[in-house]
Amino acid sequence: MVNSEVPVQNAKSSVLRGKRPKFTWDRAFPILTLVPSLAALGVFVYGFIFWSGYVSLTNWNSFIPNFSFAGLRNYVLVFQTFRFQSDLRNIVVFTVLFIVSCLIIGLFLAILVDQKIRMEGLFRSIFIFPMAISFVVTGVIWSWMLNPETGVNLILKAFGLHHLPQWFLSTRFVPNIQVGQIQLGIPIALIAVLIAAVWQMSGFAMAVYLAGLRGIPEELKEAARVDGAGPWRTFWSVILPQLRSTTTTIVIILTAASLKIFGLIYAMTGPGQEFVTDMPSMNMFQTTFQANQFAQGAAIAIVLLIMMAAFTVPYLISTIKQGGDA
């Protein structure tokens, strides 16, 4: 037995050596490679968020920085404003409508394109191309398309419609329920923004759904067919359940895009009359850089960040856990 002759102390140190492997440059390089990026993100993401959070707790609400402590006063003030309450209504209404529209249209397009059609590449490219242009460009184009005097309304008129929508100039709500100082409901003006946003982003949902559809094993569909399930039955009980994680992914990415929406609003409508198309991102920008109310702007930004993190952090953690060890 060789082991029995090894002194106890040596055995102990070899255990230690097993725990802490000898230093080699090849072990250090991966970490050293990441250090510059981690340092940059540490400052530009985490440091700046922390800094913004700090600003939101101060009295810096004029051009001259004032870092005296204000507690949560800025948050209270912001939540009391008509503008921010409108923002919250708008962002919720918009995000829900945007995601539902993109999911339905995206899935529908993906199924159409997945029918072993000719020129599939061309059709796919057409549905995705709006993703390649700027939200700002989309906003400029659709503010012409949806100009109440012309564009889409000319077509509606040709179909005999008389009460033409005022699109992004409208101040109407459907339904219109007064709650406190704001009206709850869907602002018609937001529908105009929605059309432009869905035009731009539905191709994304299509592309991800198409990848999802192609990932469903052929045997599953075959098995359903053998069991005598028709196309509808197969879709509802076989295909749709298989697309659950795909749908989650799309919802998360589109929620993030929706909460961030800025350029489209800026180029198309701005805050709108009575803030019918205002968003927290827009409110933050104007409050901070036009009204110089830095602390209140920072408070809006932090609220927006918390909304975003509530959606994306659980998703990120579960995705990394699943994929991490693979």
Binding site: F48, S52, V55, V313, L316
Partner: peptide, 16 residues
């Protein structure tokens, strides 16, 4: 730590 930066609204870093 790196991926979190993908999802932040950039308004939250704009002032600093």
């Amino acid at each position: 730590f790196i991926l979190f930066g993908l999802f932040i609204p950039y308004q939250s870093v704009l002032i600093p």
